[in-house]
């Protein structure tokens, strides 16, 4: 019960229902589509790079509160980071979800995205929380290696 209420916190709900990051990005350099065929969640992630700095990110799409908020929070976390930093943070996020990293100090760089730490207690929702991060990881690996 409390896990559930943790999950549907104000932070997550505001990001899922009223995200400022859900929009079309002008001058995006790359767009990557991500989807979970089993549940139908779909996002289109747009990125604007300035050299090796992620100047801006935005998304369009539809899905559950977990996938939408995770996308929006990821964008807030990674905006302004270098590609290298972003890859590190994505790796840490996925390791947190898989419970491979539990140390709060190491997780600090995730900023608000640490809110998804307990999603590993809801296995049915892990894929929702990870969708945007995997999509961005693919985008960066394809275009910024």
């Amino acid at each position: 019960m409390s896990e559930l209420e943790d999950m549907y916190s104000d932070l997550i709900m505001e990001h899922s229902m009223n995200s400022q990051n859900k929009k079309k990005l002008k001058d995006a350099n790359y767009i990557e589509l991500g989807h979970n065929p089993n549940c139908g969640d779909e996002i289109s992630l747009q990125i604007k790079l300035n050299g090796d700095v992620i100047e801006d990110l935005a998304f369009l799409g539809h899905g559950c509160a977990i996938s939408m908020s995770s996308t929006s929070i990821m964008i807030d976390t990674l905006r302004g980071k270098t590609v290298k930093e972003a890859k590190e943070i994505i790796k840490t996020f996925i390791q947190m979800i898989k419970r491979e990293i539990t140390d709060e100090v190491q997780l600090k760089k995730l900023e608000d995205a640490i809110a998804f730490k307990n999603i590993s207690n809801m296995p049915a929702r892990v894929k929702c929380s990870i969708l945007a991060w995997r999509t961005l990881e693919d985008l960066l690996n394809k275009n910024c290696s």
Binding site: M1, L4, M7, Y8, C39, H62, G63, C64, A65, I66, M68, M122, A124, R125, C128
Partner: peptide, 11 residues
Amino acid sequence: HPHDVASILDS
């Protein structure tokens, strides 16, 4: 979204 509904009903 239906998945959020299903998760809360599951609880």
